[in-house]
Structures are given as C-alpha cells and as structure tokens.
Design a binder for these strands. Sequence first.
RNA 1: GCCGAUGUGGCGAAAUGGCAGACGCAACGGACUUAAAAUCCGUUGGGCCAUAACAGGCCCGUGCCGGUUCGAGUCCGGCCAUCGGCACCA
Length: 861
Amino acid sequence: MRSERRKPYPFDQIEPKWQAIWEERQLFHAPNPGEKGFDLGKPKFYILDMFPYPSGAGLHVGHPEGYTATDIVARYKRMRGFNVLHPMGWDAFGLPAEQYAIKSGQHPAVTTRENVAKFKRQLKRIGFSYDWQREINTTDPLYYKWTQWIFLQIYNSWFDPETKRAEPISTYRGTDPDSVRLAYVADVPVNWCPELGTVLANEEVVDGKSEVGGFPVVRRPMRQWMLRITVYAERLLDELDKLDWPEGIKLLQRNWIGRSEGAEIDFKIDKGDQEIRVFTTRPDTLYGGTFLVLAPEHSLVDLIVTEEQWPAVREYRERTARKSELERVDLSKEKTGVFTGAYAINPGNNEKIPIWIADYVLVGYGTGAIGGVPAHDERDLEFAKKFDLTIVVVVQPTGDEPAIGFTGEGIAVNSPIINGLTSAEAKKKITAWLEERGLGKRAINYKLRDWLFSRQRYWGEPFPIIWKNGKHRSLGENELPVVPPSLDDYKPTGTGEPPLAKAKEWVRYSDKALRETNTMPQWAGSCWYYLRFCDPHNDRRFVGEEAERYWSGIGFQPMSHRQDANAAAGIVDLYVGGTEHAVLHLLYARFWHKVLFDLGYVSKPEPFQRLVNQGIILGEDNQKMSKSRGNIVNPDDVIDQYGADAFRCYEMFMGPLEQMKPWSMRGVEGVARFLARVWRLMMIENQAAEWELSPAVKDVDSTKAQQKILHATIKKVTQDIESLSFNTAISQMMIFVNAFTNVDAIPLSAMRAFLGLLNPFAPHTTSELWERLNAKFSDARGGITEQRWPTYDEQLLVEDETEVVIQINGKVRDRIKMPILATQEELKSAALSNPKIQDRIAGKTVRNVIVVPKKLVNIVV
RNA sequence: GCCGAUGUGGCGAAAUGGCAGACGCAACGGACUUAAAAUCCGUUGGGCCAUAACAGGCCCGUGCCGGUUCGAGUCCGGCCAUCGGCACCA
C-alpha cells in the first residue's frame, strides 16, 4: 500500500473547485448569432477534435493527447478575443455495442448511455473547456433524424456531368432517374463477412480480413445501397490543394482516389458484332497487345465463349467466386486463367488475338478488361509466359535494360504509326489516331469505388426508404426520424438479411409497402457532425442557416478577419485526430459536404481547413498500448496521483504532437514538479500547514533581466502555441520559473503575465493562483479566463551586447562579448587581435574571414 | 514491390545552414534533516592529455558512405534500419 503521500500542492482540491465554477458559470459556452452574449466584434474560431466512440473500456491516455492540444489552442484563442467553437460529442453507433448486446442481451442504447457517462466524466476531470451545451450523440433520434434527412438529399440528387455538381433529381431529364441517383441500389460483389454476418466496405477489409475482429471475408454478389462517391473523384482530388493538411495525408487520399490517365480502346470480336472496351494507361503499346483478358465476372464472357471452352470457363468462374479476398489478393501465387475460345482484332495491326479470362483482371476497375501487352507489363508478361502467349516488343528502352519486361518510357518500335516517337508523344498520337477512327478515346480512370453504404446490423441509422412492388421510394421529411424497432434478438440472421427484418410489425410500413431493413454504416453519423455542432438543438433544420454562415466565417466577421475567413475552403479551422481516418472518415465527410454544398445547404466547399494528426502514445515498454500487454495507462490513475494539470502538461511535454512517443510516469512526475514550483513561487505553507500567498510576491518592477526573460517567454509561448509546438512552450516556461526561483522579490506583474501564458496548459492551478493574487492585490480584475493574452515588447528583447563566436576553419576557438551594433570590420579586427586566436594563427596565412553580424567570425587559414 | 515518415546522450527531446544536446527524466555529489521523503544547489555525450588541487587543453561525436559550403543534425546524391500506408488498379 502506498502511504497517503502529501500532495506537493493541493491540486486535488483546486481542480474540482474550478471545474465546478466553469460549469456553473458556463464560461466556455460559445454564443451563436442572436443568442445572449453574442458579440459581433469577435472573430470566430472553430476548433474540433475527432469525436470518440465511447467504448466500455473508457478513455486511455491516447485520447486526451489531441484533446489537450485543441484545448490549449481553444483557451488561447479565447484569450486572443475569438468566439471559439470547441465542442465534443459521441460517435456511438457501431459494432462493439451491438456485439456486446448479442452477448449480454443488454440493449445497445443502455450500454451506450453508460459508456458516454463514463467518457464524459473522465473528460471533465481533465478540465477541457468544451461547450457542453453543444454535446451531440449520433444515436440520438434528434441527431440521426438529420443523418437520415441528409441521406434523402443524396438520394434525391444526381450528378450533372455538365456542371460537375449535384442537382436535385427533378432536374434530370433522362427516362430512369433511379439510374443516376447519388444513392442507388445495385447487385454488386461485396465483401461478405460470414462471422460478422454483414457486408463491409473495401476500407473495412484489411488483408482479406475484417478490420473489426479479423474474420475472413469473401466476395459475394448482393443487393446493396451504394453512394456514388466516384462522380466526385475529380473534385475530391483537385480540391485537396486548398486544404492545410499534412502532405502525407493528402497523398494517402490521392492514392486512394487513384487517378490515372490513358485511353479506352475498342477491340472487335472476331466472329460476332460485340466489342470489348479496354482501359490502358499505355495506348502507345497497342501494337504489343497480343491477347485480351477479361475479368471472370465480365458481362461479355457469356456471349463470346465457344462451346468447347464452356466447361473450363464455368469451372474457373466458380472457383474464382469461391475464393476469399485473401486468396485472390495473394501475390505470391501464380497467375491463373482460361482461354475463352474467342478472338478479337487488335485495332492497331488488325491481328487476331486470343481472349482469356483471369482473376488478375478486376471487374471493378476500368472496363473490367485489359489488352495484354506482355513485353511491357509485368503481370501480362507473367501471364503470357505461363500460357505461352506471343510477346512483341514495342518500346525500346533508352538505356541498356532488356526490352522484354521494360515498363518505363522509351521509344516506340514495331508500331507503324508511331515508330520512333517517345512514349509520351506516341500516347498522344495513337490516341488521336484511334479517336479519328472511332476506335477509342482519351479516358481517365479512378481507383476509387462507389461507397457501399448498407450494413446488415441492428445498431445503426435505419434508411428512410420503403419498398413497394420491388421499387424503392423515399419517406417524406415529416416521417423522420425512422427509429429502429426494439428487438430481443440482435443476432445477424446469417443469410445476409438484416436483423431489422425480424421486426415484422415495424417492417410493414403499409399493406403494400415494406421498410428498408439495412442500416447505415458507422461513418454516416460522423460525416456531418461538425455541422450539427454549429447549431445542435435546431429542430427545423440540420443546421440553421445563420449559424452555418457564421461558423463558416461568412457574413458576420469583423472586417479585419473577413479576408482570412473567406480564403479558407473549410468551415472547421483546426481539426485534430488520428491518422487512421486518413481515407475513411475524412474522404466520406468531404463527399457529403460537397453534396450539401452543391445543393446550397452549406457555404464552404470543404469541411476541414487545417488538419493535424496526433501521434500514437506507446506504453512505457515502447510497445503499442494493449490490454494483452498490460501496458495501458488510465488517465484517472495519473490524475489521482499528479492532478489534471500535470497530466495535461505531460501529454504536451512528451514531444512533438504529431510524433509517436512512449509514456513515462517519471516524466509526469517531472512536469508535476514544475507545476509545484510554479505554485511555491507564489505560495508558502504557514505554521498550520495551510497554503497562503507568499510575502515575496510584491507589486514591484521587474529587474531588467527578469523583464527580458518574461518577454522572451511571452514571445516563445505565443509562437509555439500558434505552431502547435507545445513541448517547447513548456520548456520555455520552465526556464522562466527557474529564473524566478530563489529570488527575494517576486514581481506581481511578471507573475500575472506568466499565469496568463500557463493558463491554457494548466488552467486549474493558474486560476487558483490568479484568484489568490486578486485577493491581495487590486491591479487586475476578473478571473484569469477573462484576461487578454499577454503581449511582448520586441524592444525589451534587444541585447546591448552579444556573445560572438570566433572560429578557425569552422571550429570554435573562443568567444568574445561584442556590442550588438558592432560593424563587420570591428568584429573582424576584434577576432584577429584576440590573443588566443593570435597564438593559433601565428605563422599562418589568413585566407578568408567570414563575419556573421551578432553571431560569429570564421577565420580560414 | 511502390509511396510516405522517422533515425541526435542512459531515456523523452531541443537546435532561421552559424557554439550540437536547451528543457525534462534518470544517475551521481552536496545543503537541510536524528533519519528519510520532499525541497534547494551542483555535476553529468565519449575518449585523451594535464594537475597536489582548482583550472586548463586536445581529439571524436547527430544511422552509414559520398558531395556542396568558410561552416552541414539541417542542403544534395546513394545506401541501411524502424514504423505507417497501398498493394495484380492495367
């Protein structure tokens, strides 16, 4: 048993005290336009954390890393006069609650409520300055009513390729609007996970296994809801340029969208009138195309297979269909395929080439068919070697590599129309040639697939859709929210039919119409939560127009800030969260936002202007924190022992925010010591062991040196918060405190300014000290959170004298004090006449002298 | 395989091309104490020389090899290692 150790300072009393005061006074509530306390003169700042999934395990120290960073910025921005939107909520639909329900029989709503309460209590203990009046929960019918409403907007829209925008479906002039809706139903090969009893999005499948649970996933065609995100591929790609995101994350999204430029070429079938369209990025290799390969699922396969090849083709297709995603993706395996018996004509040279099917060609990419160019494509080469197909070299490498297997750019050969051209020129020319003859055209392809949007689960948003005579139709807005039925049995049916189908009463919408029984994926709620935070209690609109415009920085900003605000493409000024959402949440949210933007519901084209990813916190053993390793650190334990302020400061002091770094309890202790030193700078323990204000704190002027270090600290902390370099900001404040330790008189004004700087990091301790100062001195009014951020005077930082380094051949040999204004000549002569230097250069020729004013003199001999 | 990030003391880390290791941890020594804890003060990259001691001096050092530069942790080229992402995308 640890003996009840005396606290180095009474954080256990002051932290709950200040948390209660903040809550009671609602100090961190951000008023909306029209609300009491709203100040038109303040610019807005929207700073958002990726909201958590409230799991049963509660918070671990990784969560509050990003939250602390944003909280520091939020508190700082408030002190700089911003109206700061800093909300928190719960992304609470999803598998774990449902899995738990299956095991325990407890309704997911109950577990969700308990988990949320636990998370909220833990977050409050850390002293975050969230505007809790704006708390939202994706599983609240008042919230998901609007998730369903947005789905209806998507469902009732189409993408006009002319304007490249979403438009209401009523503007569509074609015959079958259902074929162009942004939400549609399709029979698609999906990732079916038998163990979970549900289909998964491509993004939820990792190495052929489910991301959740690691269960095997197989391909299987099913009727599913899809969202037509692919029509936005171009904009999702191009508009990344406007965002202040880490380049790495932008790159991940670019790769995920996977734009590639090339041509679509039509190959006539030898005996028959069909054509096979292939996509290629290398139209310049057309003459080297010695066979075609179709994906096994390609729709033309049925039409072209010859009688004698049927059994082999059928067998191959069945085998492919049975394969799990893992088997199919396995690269180490050999290429497989079957000849269809049919031939096509290469439009370049009119040669007859065989048509094969093989599972290395994917039905979902391009046209699901390729022209095999074995000489210049690794996969085609492997395939051609295995099945003994013709190999023709059509690109000559400019270096001395072998031509067969050369996939780079070179010079076209054996290609009558383009011989002698570079690959780039050849691409252009052959594409133009094909276009003239109606044999092909320039084409752009994206790797991005449409978003598989339905799940066979209980704990998710039901679709606001009903089925009648085999056709789907949307419910009216007045029928929202569609609330899921309560069920006794949440288990997946195992057949792929969703659990909601078990609620027979609920499913029956009317005599002739049935409800859609799929639910939305977990991503749905997080696709727009940042919008709801702007106006969380609006019951007439998903977000009020005025609130949306205000928090987007439009219309209401003071003139001085208007330009900045309008330059931003995104509504959220700073968004902090983990990298794991680089291509899932962040892409889906951008997509929804763009649809809403096109339809005129939001004023900015992007959701998140600046994105920062916090690094993962490892256990003390340098391993990823996990239950099995037993290295998980619980914030509650840390706070019990060292207090919330020490916890916050340590999270920031560990190292750069974006870096992965290990936890260290010793490190927490060090930071706790720093806070205790701050405390004792102003407080002293009396005979009765009570803390009282130290008599050393006096309303006196700072010494010159103290003034200098104060202003240097203001400057550094200000700049470091702006650049999110919290670790070095804390270092500087430690230097400040060290400088004031053991001095006789502690100047009040310096302490006031310092407490302001430290407040965003350690809000409880600084609030308490501020209040204690107020009790004795009358130089300041109000609580610390109402104070303006300290400013620094550059003049006070200027030194009269500076230490100049003297180097010989780049090596430091001596240091001299020189006036700050010393000229280059003065520095040079001072260096050369320095006795130590004279000794060293005696007898040598000085060849060059480099002088860097205020810094150094380098003598080259 | 392709793409990206990272590599600095015993540890977490800091350094607009200009004194490498700020700040913190740990360790060691000292003060205070009956004692310990706490606190305060000091030392602390490695090697060598020197001295009675204090002081002082020299060399090496930011994953490895090379380059640019008066000067490189920082810029350029090549490699190695670790982590992350993508992975038959035609």
